[in-house]
Design a binder for these strands. Structure first.
Lengths: 192, 192
DNA sequence: ACCTCTATCTTGACAGTGTCAGGATGAAGC
DNA sequence: GCTTCATCCTGACACTGTCAAGATAGAGGT
């Protein structure tokens, strides 16, 4: 609990936490590496040793974001019917949940050039998220094109809602909003 | 044709053109006001007089982006069947066309905090784009929820394609890609 | 015990950025 | 010709990311 040691102990994790806080407060376009260091209580060049540069930090943050992205979908799936169709819809609702709960992380992952998307760890995290969706589409009898269609619908809903551009949907109470989202998702893949 | 006059003549338009070129080359997150001024051949503080600050320039650029966004949709609609359903699908294809032709502008408009979206001109331009879509959904018998569903599908396809994340769709030849997009769009609103 | 080695973090510097204050320029109106 | 004013420039400031060089402390060997 001593914050004033020369060696921090777990500065890497502390910097990631500070970076996420800065990201959600200031947004990706006002993100500052020095602000992150200041928030973590270290010098402005301390992050360099753990992440190389600002891109490295944001890449690591994007990896963590993808993991939480999948975890948010799993939360929805856990409380949904075990049928493939219900699981797929639940994943879509989790997709939207993540975008609304962590809009800055969502934008970092899907609408930013700052993370290095050729980084192996980030590639793997992104591929895992895609594979999860593709598996579920396969389970309902769809192929690559159906995966693209479902993904686009979920992504469009999530992105527009997170940006505050779907006021008619956002104004609905949670249950009817979810059912509207579910209906849109259901239409995006073929009937059984 | 004299580029070295003290008074530029139409610096505002020249700065907008330079800003769009910089935006599409460097991306929104590496956008630099000084680079724009340098490209236009004026001093680093010249843009301030016409746009106030960097946000003002990007706001004006977003307004122009919304206009071109609508124009791109109109191009598709002009060569499509005049039936309401075909016109709506054409608008969706134009939506995707714009995202692929001007990805940086698309991101500026839909995934950036830098423009001032409370600016009257920008609000009006954005509302016009929304109204165009809503009108077409109304013409096929849909309401607010259907508008949201169609919008989300078109937006998701456009955003993911522009980000290069739908390789299966992007790999298709143009005609079959368009028909796949059209099929996804058709499913997003009720049958006649 | 001491001594090195190494990872970790700090300090200081540099070029580049947005923004502001003040000054220079030149076109238009009287 | 003189004034006026929009237009554009120069210079300064604080802030940013990145690099080089130094300070610190924990670990491991002798």
């Amino acid at each position: 609990m001593d914050d004033h040691r020369y060696h921090h102990g777990d500065l890497r994790a502390a910097l990631l936490a500070a970076a996420e806080a800065e990201l959600s407060e200031k947004g990706i376009e006002a993100f500052s590496l020095r602000s992150v260091a200041k928030r973590a209580g270290v010098s402005h060049a301390a992050p360099a040793h753990h992440f190389g540069d600002a891109r490295g930090l944001l890449t690591a943050l994007a990896v963590a974001g993808f993991r939480r992205f999948l975890a948010t979908q799993h939360q929805r799936e856990a409380v949904a019917d075990p049928t493939p169709r219900a699981q797929l819809v639940a994943a879509g609702l989790g997709y939207v949940d993540f975008a609304l709960a962590y809009p800055a992380l969502f934008r970092l992952i899907f609408s930013s050039d700052r993370p290095d998307f050729t980084d192996p760890a980030l590639c793997q995290a992104g591929d895992a998220a895609y594979a999860h969706l593709a598996d579920q589409v396969t389970a309902v009898g769809g192929g690559a094109l159906e995966t693209a269609a479902v993904w686009a619908t979920a992504h469009g809903l999530a992105d527009l809602l997170a940006a505050g551009r779907l006021k008619t949907l956002a104004a609905l109470p949670p249950e009817s909003r979810d059912s509207a989202l579910a209906a849109a998702l259901m239409r995006s893949f073929p009937a059984p």
